[in-house]
Simulated scan of single mutants.
Amino acid sequence: MMNPQWLRSFVVLAERGSFTRTADQLGLTQAAVSQHIHHLEAQLGPLLIRRPRQVELTPAGQALLGYCDDMEQAEKRLNLRLSGADDRQGEISLITPGSIGLSLYPLLLDLQASYPGLSVRHRFAPDQDVLEGVRNNHFELGLVTLKPDDPRLVACHFADEPLDLVVPATATVNSWEDLESLGFIDHPDGHAMASRLLSRVFPGNRGIRSIACKGFVNQVGLILEPVARGFGFSVIPRYAREAYAPGEAIRVVEMGPRVVDALWLIYRAEWPLSARARFVASELASRLTGETLVLV
């Protein structure tokens, strides 16, 4: 690799056209500048045609000047990437639970359509995998349903997500017995979510396990398919319900006080969040909730 100081002297000499002016600009002696050019020419061959008041670049000199320009641009790109200063370029890496992810992913694609320099990498995962993914630097941003107590992570309130009691559009639900007649469509968090919500809607009920299970689905985007077909009811987060396309085939039962979970945006505390991650996180929160995201 060529000495950076020699290359700097050559670039300034090509711009200024004079050893005297080059030495003055760099704070060097003319002899030092001449020595730098001599070292380069020993490696690359003649770079300059020396005239009394001006120098002219040879083809090799033009090639070296282009090389120096390429190196300067590469250094700028590296510094920009390391600083994360460009908020419209680069990769956005986000890991979220499936329910909120169903709503966020189309918004991420909308942002990518508006800013083609962005590249989206989004993974659906449970809370524990989200925490590990951000802690291990596999993802810059994550969303979790429980605020972590970990000094390595910053947690900012992102959104609130109520639980919804979802039944077939034609079903009538006024009592616990109505739910028993429908049956339950379970999912990995089904019993926990149903127990939390139904204990408020129907205080003193016999418990979700007393209701016949009519099916189990482990893909969040498919939980409401059997509900829409009339096979039973389910309890799921609202963003998952809103992302279900055939919304006319289902209905949300609004009874009793709501159960609302907070969603927390997490990222590493030890270094600054990139500008593009700040931009995208703020845009997602605004487009999803209409509120301004406060980032640390």
Results as ranks from 00 to 15, higher is better:
Leu102Met: 12
Asp110Val: 02
Val167Thr: 14
Thr172Leu: 14
Val167Cys: 10
Arg135Tyr: 04
Leu141Pro: 09
Ser114Cys: 02
Leu141Gln: 08
Leu104Ile: 15
Tyr115His: 14
Glu132Ile: 10
Thr145Arg: 12
His157Asp: 12
Asp160Gly: 14
Val134Glu: 01
Asp127Trp: 00
Arg123Ser: 04
Asn137Cys: 05
Gly142Asn: 08
Arg121Gln: 13
Lys147Phe: 00
Ser103Gly: 12
Ser175Glu: 07
Asp160Lys: 03
Leu153Gly: 06
Asp164Trp: 14
Ser103Cys: 07
Ser114Asn: 06
Gly117Asn: 09
Leu107Ile: 05
Leu118His: 02
Lys147Gln: 13
Cys156Val: 08
Leu104Glu: 05
Asn136Val: 05
Pro162Asn: 12
Ser119His: 13
Asn136His: 12
Val166Asp: 10
His122Ile: 02
Leu102Val: 08
Arg123Thr: 07
Gly117Ala: 11
Pro162Trp: 12
Leu108Gln: 01
Thr145Tyr: 08
Asp149Cys: 04
Pro106Glu: 08
Gly117Tyr: 13
Pro106His: 08
Ser103Met: 14
Leu153Val: 11
Val166Met: 13
Tyr115Thr: 05
Pro116His: 03
Leu165Lys: 06
Tyr105Met: 13
Tyr115Trp: 15
Val120Ser: 01
Ser119Ala: 10
Gly101Ser: 03
Tyr115Ala: 05
Gly133Gln: 06
Pro116Tyr: 06
Pro162Ala: 13
Phe158Ala: 02
Glu140His: 05
Leu104Lys: 07
Ser119Thr: 15
Phe139Ala: 01
Ile100Phe: 09
Ser114Phe: 00
Ala171Asn: 04
Asp127Lys: 03
Tyr105Glu: 14
Leu131Met: 14
Cys156Asn: 15
Leu102Ser: 07
Glu140Gln: 14
Pro106Gln: 10
Val154Arg: 15
Asp110Leu: 09
Ala171Ile: 03
Leu107His: 02
Asp129Ala: 02
Ile100Cys: 07
Phe139Asn: 01
Lys147Ser: 01
Ser114Gly: 05
His122Asp: 04
Ala125Asp: 14
Ser103Val: 04
Asp149Ser: 13
Glu161Ala: 03
Tyr115Ile: 07
Leu111Pro: 03
Ser119Ile: 12
Pro126Thr: 06
Asn174Gln: 15
Tyr115Arg: 02
Leu153Ile: 11
Pro162His: 11
Gln128Asn: 12
Val134Gln: 01
Asp160Val: 04
Gly142Thr: 08
Leu108Ser: 01
Asp164Gly: 00
Ser175Ile: 08
Gly142Phe: 09
Leu108Pro: 01
Val166Cys: 10
Arg121Cys: 09
Arg135Thr: 14
Ser175Tyr: 09
Gln128Thr: 14
Gly117Glu: 10
Leu163His: 04
Val173His: 09
Asp150Pro: 05
Leu165Pro: 07
Pro168Asn: 08
Arg123Cys: 03
Leu104Trp: 09
Leu143Phe: 08
Leu163Pro: 03
Ala113Asn: 10
His138Tyr: 13
Thr170Leu: 13
Lys147Arg: 15
Glu140Cys: 01
Leu165His: 07
Asn136Pro: 00
Leu165Gln: 06
Gln112Met: 12
